[in-house]
Write a protein that binds this DNA or RNA. Sequence first.
RNA 1: GGGCGAUUAGCUCAGUUGGUUAGAGCACUUGCUCGACACGCAAGAGGCCACAGGUUCGAGUCCUGUAUCGCCCACCA
Length: 737
Amino acid sequence: MPLEKTYSAKENETKIYKLWEESGFFNPDNLPGDRSESYSIVLPPPNVTGTLHMGHAAMLAIEDSLIRYQRMRGKKTLWLPGTDHAAIATQEKVEKQLYKEKKTRHDFERADFLRLVDQFAQESHDTIVSQIKRMGASIDWSREAFTLDAQRGQAVFEAFKRMFEGGLIYRGERIVNWDPRLQTTVSDDELEWREEKTPFYYLKYGPFTIGTARPETKFGDKYVVMHPDDKRYTEYEHGQKLELEWINGPVTATIIKDPAIDPEFGSGVMTITPWHDSTDFEIAQRHNLDKEQIIDSQGKLLPIAQEFSNQHISKARGKIVEKLTAKGLLEKVDQNYLHRVAINGRGGGLIEPQIMEQWFVDVSKEFELPHSSLMGIKAGQKTTLKKILQLVVKNGQIKILPERFEKNYFHWINNLRDWNISRQIWYGHRIPVWYRSTDAHDRQNGTPSDSRGVEMKINLASPGEGWEQDPDTLDTWFSSGLWTFSTLGWPNDTKDLENFHPTDVLETGYDILFFWVARMVLMSGFLLGEVPFKTVYLHGLVRDEKGAKMSKSLGNIIDPVDMAEKYGADATRLSLIIGNGPGNDLKLSEDKIRGYKHFANKIWNATRFVLMNTADLDLKTTPTYSATQQENLVALKSLTAAVTDDIENYRLYLAAEKLYHYFWHQFADKIIEENKVIIKSGSPQEKQAAQWLLLEILTTNLKLLHPFIPFVTEKLYQALPNKKAPLLMIEAWPLNQ
RNA sequence: GGGCGAUUAGCUCAGUUGGUUAGAGCACUUGCUCGACACGCAAGAGGCCACAGGUUCGAGUCCUGUAUCGCCCACCA
C-alpha cells in the first residue's frame, strides 16, 4: 500500500500502538528468539493524584528508548508499569474537594472516606494509563502493579514484619513534624521552608535576656541554657537553680551548659521548649530533662498556659505579649526579624513540632543478613542500613548518573536520622500492629500512650476479639521502597524475581533521590541482600521556556498529551531527549516540539522517495558499489557504532542528535541527491547499486531511530520491501550487520 | 553557613577522554512552487565560548580566583 502524501502523526500513532500491544511483545515471555540475557526497568509509579505532566513524559521517553534499544539488542526485556497511591498527596486532593462542601474526613466513617479516595484514585489511574500509552511506552501491561493492591499489601506486611522482628522497626517517642491542618506527621524530607518577617521578642528571664519569635511556647520553660565556654556566664554552674518571675508567676529555673548554644547569637543564652522544638528536644535528651507539652495537636494552648488555655496560638500570641509587657518582662522587640517557618510540602499546613509516639526505622542498628550479594557485606556479617546505603554506592555496585549526585547522596546519608514511617492519615497501608487494651493508644490530644502492659501482635487481619489495630498508616515511601521487587512477586519466590532482579536501570527525577531511590536501596538491601538496580539515571525538571517551574497557578503548563495530539508523540519525545543530558533541567518550548515534527515529516518523505525509486528493484540482485557509495556505507557503520556507544553510556541526547543530523543533512541532503541523479541517468548496473544503497541506508536508519521516534519508524518499516521481522520493534539492532 | 550546577550565535541548548576554520534547532537575510518533502531546498549573516590569571606545543574543554544566576542541604533560640 503506497504511503499517503502527508504524514498524520495523530492518526498513525494510535493505530501503531494497537499493533504493538496486540503483538504481545511488550511482555518478555512472548519475545521471539533465544534471549538468554534479561534487561529490566520498573517504571517509577506516577502518583494517582491527577494526570501526567511533561516530567513524566520525559521519563517515559528516556525509559522507552532504553527498553526498545535493549529489546532490539536481543535481550529478554521487561518494562514494568504501575501507579503509586501516594497516601498523603492523594488524600489531600480528596479532602480539598470535601473542604469545598465544608466537610472534613472526620465527617465520614473511615471506610466510607476511603471509598471516596479509592474512586478518585481509580479515575486518576485510568487517565494515567491512557496517557502512558499515548506516549508510545512499550511497557508490559500484563504485569501492572499498584502500591496499594493486594499483592503489594502482602509485600508491605512481610517487610514490616521482618523489620520489626529484626529490631529495625520500633515504636518510640520522638519529636516529629506535626501538621495540625492535616492532622498528621510529615517526614523531614517533605518539609518546605518559607522565610517570614516576624517580630522577635527579647524577654527578661531572671538575670538573663532570652530571645524568641514564639512567646506562646514559653510557658513551661524552666531550663536556661548557655555554652560551657562562654566567659560571660562563668559565675553560673551547670545544674544550679535560680528563682525568677515568669509569665504566669515564679518558677525555679535550672542552668544547663550545652555546646549547641551559639554564644554569638543574641545574649548567648536561651530557654528551651523540648516538646515543640527539635534542637531543644535534643538538648533535653542529652541532659535527661523534663519535657512538657504546651500546645495540643489542634494548635491550642494547654492548661499550663492558665488564662490562655484552649486559645489557638495564632490568636493568643498578641495577648501573651501584652501580659509580658505589663509585667515588665519584655525588653525590646525587633520588628524586622527574618524567621524561617516549616510547612508541609504535601499539603501546606504550618508545622508544629510535637513529641509523639511514632513508628521508626532504625538506620543505625546492627543486624545480620541471611543472604547477601552485596559487595563488601557477607551473609552473617554485622551491618546497618546506613552502612548498606553507603557501601553499595561507594564501591560502585550502584552507579549514579550524573556522578555529581553521588556527593549529595553521601551527604544525605551522613545526616540521616531514624526514619519516621507512621502517618496519621487514613489512605495507605495501615500499620499491621494490633493491641489488646482499652486506653493504650489514645492520641486524641497528641498525648503519648503508655505501651507498658499492652499486648501487641503483628498481623494482617484482626487476631480476634478485643484486638484493635493501630490507627496510623505507613509513609507512602515505605511501600514504594519495595517497588523493584514487590512488583516482581516478592515475598514469593517467583521466576520474575530470579530473572529480573536486580533491575538494570532506575530512571527518575533527581528530586526524589532521597525520598525514593535511597529507600529502595535500604529496603532491597535488608530484605533481599541485593541492590535494587545497577544504575540510577537521574533526569532533571522540565521547565517552561523561561526556566520557570511548570505549574497550574502560573498557567505555563505544556501538556504532553496536547503536544502529542498536535505534533505527535514522536516529536514530543524527541524534544524531551535531544539537548538534555542527565541531571540537567530542560527548558521546553512548543517551538522545539514543532521542530521535531518537521523531522518526522522529513523521515516520511525521504522514505517515500526511496520507496518510489526502488519499486522496480529486484531484491535478489547483489549491488556493485562505487567508491563513493562504499564510503557512504563505511560512514554508516561508524555512525551505528557511535550511536550504540552513546546509548550504552546513557548519552541518549547525543545519540538522538547524531541520528537527526545524519538522516537530514547527510542522507537526505547529500546521499539521496547524489544517487537521485544516478537512478535517473546511470547505467542499469549503476542504477541498481544506487537503489540498493538508498534502501540499505534507509533501513538501517529506521532501526537506529526507532528507540527514539518509534511510531513513524514503525509505520515506515511496515512499508519496506526488504523488512525481515513482523515489527520493527523486534528487529535486530544493526550492529555487526 | 556547607555543597552542587550554570554562564558558548537574538532565543533554547550540544560540544563525550584538551587537537584543524566552535555546531544544531528556532528566529533572521537572499534566491528558489525543479515530480520525496515550502513541515522543503540552496546560499548567507550572526560568537573577545561570563571575567582575570595559570598549566600545555595546543584550552570552550584542565587548574586557581572573581562575578552573576539557579538548585540542594543544614540552621540561631
